[in-house]
Design a protein around this nucleic acid. Structure first.
Lengths: 343, 343
DNA sequence: CTGTTAGCGCATTCAC
DNA sequence: GTGAATGCGCTAACAG
């Protein structure tokens, strides 16, 4: 079943069929109707491969993410896809699993499929691979890394503000000893969050003990184990900030395996605000990263390829979502309160 | 950049380049090496569209799921993709969102991309759409619906056994009044689970009050609201079985918003065993649906296209995972125990 | 083992 | 507004 048969049945040329498929203006409504009918009776579906080959455009946008198993990403993928579909585009999602080898494979797929643009939502990507995309002048948009220039746009997350709000919140509650469970230092996004934490702690003149920063890996299990380490410390931290929500969920479980309670004995704050965070026990106080906005900005960056007049940087502001894992520390307001006010 | 330039640089014909790309045996190692070098220096990536067009094969398998936001699916997608990649295939995932209109769009995409097979992991699909795929002799594999024949294989989930194990477990603990939170009756998978529940309740001669079966929608929020309804009943059920884990997570939250505790006052059982279920508070007792096995079976069904000698039906057995949301009922062993033993 | 050639199915000139 | 012809980049069949 191909365009030829449709043309024959409709009594027109293949060119006319092609035109009606592509909503070309210059087709009489009547002939278009005839063609449409033929398409329907033949159950004809145009071959995407041939279309892309003939036109040179794929109408495909790539979306590279690092871990589809982290609920943050499906929520992002969904938003992105919705927008793409509304704009008559398809998306090709590829998963790196934080693995350089697979990342290369992902980029290769994008290149081979001749995508019209790529949204790179993972921070781990060798310059060589970026260069590979860049040299072909494929519109690129990065989440949280690289600086805008030429064909690349950037969506920047104001980690400092987001994590700052969290720390400010804990500080106001009276917490002074705040620990942090990071992601893998191998990942730029993890490092950025950790840095934001350090910076804000310093700004509040809060102590930053080496052992109060423990490493997770942005999975539940990682958060669980990291919190177990933290719990071995005596006394335990008053509050723990987690590099993402999955980490916090694991940490929550670790605390509750002991006699301690959240937030009575330890306050806990996550980062991302995935859907499930509203339903943990207790519901997780966290910093929201607005997925829909990120998706919208990413799509716009790729779609407004013209470049002209399109700003190449979009800053998204995380926002603190207060739920029930934070409360004043059990040991009451600390002595340092005065100094804190003076900051 | 195309095959011609590579051929020119390597001093061979395009056919030879094509052969080396496709690992054809009949290319001298030396010429192949020359070609490979040319490919590398030119940073050539073969055009997938053209390859598919020329060969007639797309090396693409479609995967249709209903809700990428339900963690069950990403875990499934991941398994499926891993296997596909290992076998040199790509996958095209499409989301129906339980929407008939979008479902049609998904099928259309599959058809247009000329996929070599489709795994349909959603139970909602009009016969017309299936027919559309079927008539083109595209290998199909369904999760949990349709019966095997011709080009379609089936992966059947033994809901009765899985849910039976859960009910048996509750029954042994002493529970007699067991409620159920279903998914949307519009979805076949929901109905199947509900039916399995009914059947097993009857088998245990347990009461099945109309009001003890309340409707959710397989989301956390749906489970939350459904449980709230259940909690309005006096007395509340001794145990609640949920149609999936998200439902159970929402239900758990609803219980904990009251003075009641799980499992002290109410036992709770989920279905799916998504990763997060091991970390809820308390960890969720649930029925595991083995994702990796489903993915493996689905891929095998599509890939072993020869059909000959390949069994078209694969039954997967769910298994009960005991965690901490189930316990004997607070009101002690029920009077009916004797009768129960007699069953 | 390698080169030549003819499509694959469609979009897109360029005429009419 | 419509048709005929060309080419997109590659594979496959056929020669050699």
């Amino acid at each position: 079943m191909n365009i030829k048969e449709v043309a024959r049945l409709a009594g027109v040329s293949t060119a006319t069929v092609s035109r009606t498929i592509n909503d070309s203006e210059k087709v009489t409504w009547e002939t278009a109707e005839r063609v449409r009918k033929a398409i329907q009776t033949l159950r004809y579906y145009p071959n995407t491969n041939a279309r892309a080959l003939g036109s040179g455009r794929s109408s495909l946008y790539g979306l590279i993410i690092s871990d589809i198993t982290n609920p943050f990403f499906p929520e992002l993928v969904k938003s992105f896809e919705d927008i793409a579909v509304r704009n008559g585009r398809e998306i090709l999602v590829a998963n790196t699993d934080y693995d350089p080898h697979r990342t290369e494979h992902c980029v290769s797929r994008m290149l081979q499929r001749k995508v019209d643009g790529v949204a790179i939502m993972t921070t781990e990507m060798e310059p060589r691979l970026i260069e590979e995309l860049s040299r072909r002048e494929i519109p690129l948009v990065f989440l949280d890394t690289a600086r805008p220039q030429g064909n690349v746009s950037t969506i920047t997350i104001d980690y400092a503000a987001g994590i700052g709000a969290a720390i400010e919140h804990l500080y106001t509650l009276g917490h002074r000893r705040i620990a942090f469970i990071s992601g893998s230092p191998a990942h730029k996004s993890s490092r950025a969050r950790l840095e934001a934490f350090r910076k804000n702690m310093r700004a509040h003149k809060l102590p930053l003990e080496f052992e109060d920063i423990v490493q997770g890996d942005h999975t539940i299990e990682g958060g669980f184990r990291a919190m177990q380490q933290l719990l071995e410390r005596k006394p335990v931290p008053q509050a723990v900030l987690c590099s993402n929500d999955l980490t916090a969920i694991g940490a929550l479980r670790a605390v509750h395996q002991t006699k301690l309670r959240v937030p009575r004995d330890i306050s806990l704050v996550g980062f991302d605000d995935i859907t499930i965070s509203g339903y943990t026990e207790p519901p997780l106080t966290t910093v929201r990263l607005p997925r829909a906005e990120i998706a919208r900005a990413a799509f716009a960056a790729l779609h407004t390829r013209s470049g002209r007049g399109h700003k190449r940087e979009h800053v998204v502001q995380p926002s603190l979502v207060l739920r029930e894992t934070t409360a004043p520390p059990a040991d009451g307001a600390p002595a340092k309160k005065t100094r804190a006010r003076a900051r």
